[in-house]
Design a binder for these strands. Structure first.
Lengths: 157, 157
DNA sequence: CGACCAACATTGGTCGTGCCAACAGTTGGC
DNA sequence: GCCAACTGTTGGCACGACCAATGTTGGTCG
């Protein structure tokens, strides 16, 4: 790519800028994740969701992070083989697998988390702390508006 | 996806918000493009680049919009079959194809442009005009910082 | 109680996009 | 005149998103 000659009309569109910025962010995260031994971002999302909710079914995990059930199966299988989580049949509902985060899984998530947070800082480097807040706020409103998700305003007060 | 239960830790990350916002933007554009008879965003990018530069080689087009030479070939072939552009061998350099935008191609680009601009407005709906400028400015700085592209500050002065 | 529909986990497949490798033809510099 | 670099083209791989079918279990309604 030759960024210096990108068409002016493209550079001015919000969708193009968002796509570029998103790509850069995913690139930064991808590099750090790969160094930590993980190839896909889904792994991190799934572990985060699991840590936040406690033991849950795979379907629930998938719904919360926007991952298809079939893909959840693959990720869970891989993470289970690494010893980061366990599958146990739910005694209350034998259709479900109760997915459980192990100690080493929690530790691994901690490492990934450090990488992810560091990637955020690198991505937002050219912005001041105040600007970063403004940016996150506006992005949150956009996402909220188009998905129904409540992103901002939940932390404080 | 169940956006209401997305893990809090994910929702706060800039990369996640950017990814979601970018996805929404691409979805909006995709819908409108599909209605206009085009399946991929590359078509629009390529036509824009071509309109801005005048007749050029395929390699040049690809470099400017970040598309691989092989993929450029496919898009150009398709657009040529639709009559939106023409391939003519460059007499000055027989390796190259001079790609030329036809009248109907320019007209088609005009239609696509309307859709794309409308999609921007829909995406940024929850933001005031001033906020949109701020957002585009910050995104531009991020992209510029990580790619070397000069996005902002070129129009005015 | 039995019949029916919905949800679960799993397997297997499709599709779009980005990217790389190889190729033959061509150019320009040394 | 030679060799490195470039061009367009074909073919392929990888990855993510997505969908369909299957066997199993849960809940509901007659």
């Amino acid at each position: 790519m030759d960024p210096l000659n990108t068409p002016v009309r493209l550079r001015g569109h919000a969708t193009w800028l968002l796509g570029q910025a998103s790509t850069q962010g995913h690139r930064l995260i991808g590099e750090r994740m790969h160094a930590a031994g993980v190839t896909s971002r889904s792994y991190y999302s799934l572990l985060v969701a699991l840590a936040e909710s406690g033991p849950t079914s795979q379907a629930d995990l998938g719904r919360r992070i926007g991952l298809d059930r079939s893909d959840v199966t693959a990720v869970v299988t891989d993470l289970e083989e690494r010893g980061y989580l366990e599958r146990t049949p739910d005694p209350a509902d034998r259709r479900r697998n109760l997915v459980n985060l192990t100690d080493s899984g929690a530790k691994f998530l901690g490492e990934l988390d450090k990488e992810v947070v560091a990637a955020q800082a690198t991505l937002l480097e050219p912005l001041s702390p105040e600007e970063r807040d403004v940016l996150l706020g506006m992005l949150g409103r956009i996402v909220e508006h188009h998905t129904g998700l409540r992103v901002s305003g939940t932390e404080e007060r």
